[in-house]
Design a protein around this nucleic acid. Structure first.
Lengths: 210, 210
DNA sequence: CATTAACCCGAATAAAAGCTCGGAAATACT
DNA sequence: AGTATTTCCGAGCTTTTATTCGGGTTAATG
């Protein structure tokens, strides 16, 4: 680990873009290997040599494209965050298309979020628990911001949403609570309660707050 | 870091109990130094030599009481969790004593939780984001379980709490959501919204769900 | 075909950090 | 006081791991 404490955002970016097709493959293989190792064995298990090995690439090639170990992990996580952002946004659009039926809309969106997170459970668990520079990755901050923007925009557009003293604060809290609850249940699997039950109940609760 | 991946719970416990008073002081100084370093500089900054140095103790003495680095951090975090558990439980008892007034009770308890977490914000931030074996620490699991027990017990005792299809699931979710929301706002400090506003709004939302 | 540029390789380097061990010093016990 | 036990010490061993670098290989270019 060492004195890798204060990390600059610049250090988290890839060093060089591949120009040829085979280089592109090398680059992708490295990112993919990093993601797999991280998800399967945790942050401490991600060493540059193991990443290179699993990617079927030499350690030298790895450093051709990435300035350091962190940038590999950051690239992998950035990719995942872009995917999740896309899926969640798409899920919202689909939910909004069910305009007349609030219950169906909420239900649809909750399930989209749950699915997006669940599909990447192992990786997210490690990322959230162990990666020290997680919140220095622009795409990670971006996802949080996106969620809040979506929520606040939804509030402004729809008159019927959230009638509390402070609309902005309550919208912030509602989004935070829903997102956290989903994350929590996806990552920590409560023993006695089925996920389906939890999803249904969550929908009920959200409806009651709107 | 090395191959410290699969950690046994036994490895997280102190090796030996101090018998003399000066030894007790040494032990405590080590735990305290670990906590301070962790909170101030993050997990990667906690090296055994630095802990010993900050504790004013030699590295040899450190290994007299702790079998490895993780056990120092685990001891520090276990202590904090016990403190938080105590404060939150105490806060609940105080809230319950305000029996007739649900709003005052909820408000009081929310504030107790917020205060308990806020006071240890820096340490908790690092613990939750960076400590790989956090959830292997019995006291950490204990806090989660305690919260759920408190919530479920409260539901059973009080008839007026949570009327949804599935009482157990909704109670689980409510507790999870509230705790997450407080943790989130304490750790991530949303820019535009004051903490006071958020607390008030959270109380309103909880009341609406009960 | 010649030349340049991009890409790939992996042994070796160097630094960091966890932990050991032999023995000295302080404290308790009788 | 004399002995046993507990505590403390810190230089150094060992292992791990990120990163470099000199040189070879493949692909683009003219």
């Amino acid at each position: 680990m060492s004195a890798v404490d204060r990390i600059q955002v610049a250090d988290l970016q890839a060093k060089k873009q591949p120009r040829q097709a085979r280089a592109r493959a090398t680059f992708d293989a490295i990112v993919e290997a990093g993601a797999q190792l991280l998800a399967a064995e945790g942050y401490a298990a991600v060493t540059t040599n193991r990443v290179a090995e699993r990617a079927g690439v030499s350690i030298g090639s790895l450093y051709e494209y990435f300035p350091n170990k962190q940038s590999i992990i950051a690239s992998a996580l950035a990719r995942v965050m872009r995917e999740i952002t896309a899926e969640v946004s798409h899920g919202l659009r689909e939910a909004l298309s069910l305009d007349g039926q609030p219950r169906a809309g909420i239900d649809s969106w909750m399930r989209a979020m749950t699915a997006a997170l669940d599909r990447r459970g192992a990786l997210l668990r490690v990322a959230l628990r162990e990666v020290p520079f997680l919140w220095d990755i622009p795409e990670v901050r971006g996802l949080s911001d996106t969620l809040q923007h979506i929520a606040q925009e939804g509030r402004r557009k729809s008159q019927r949403v959230v009638h509390f003293d402070d609309p902005e604060a309550s919208t912030y809290l509602l989004m935070t609570m829903v997102w956290s609850a989903i994350l929590q249940t996806v990552l920590y699997r409560p023993a006695h309660l089925s996920r389906e039950r939890l999803t249904q109940t969550l929908v009920e609760m959200v409806l009651k707050l709107l």
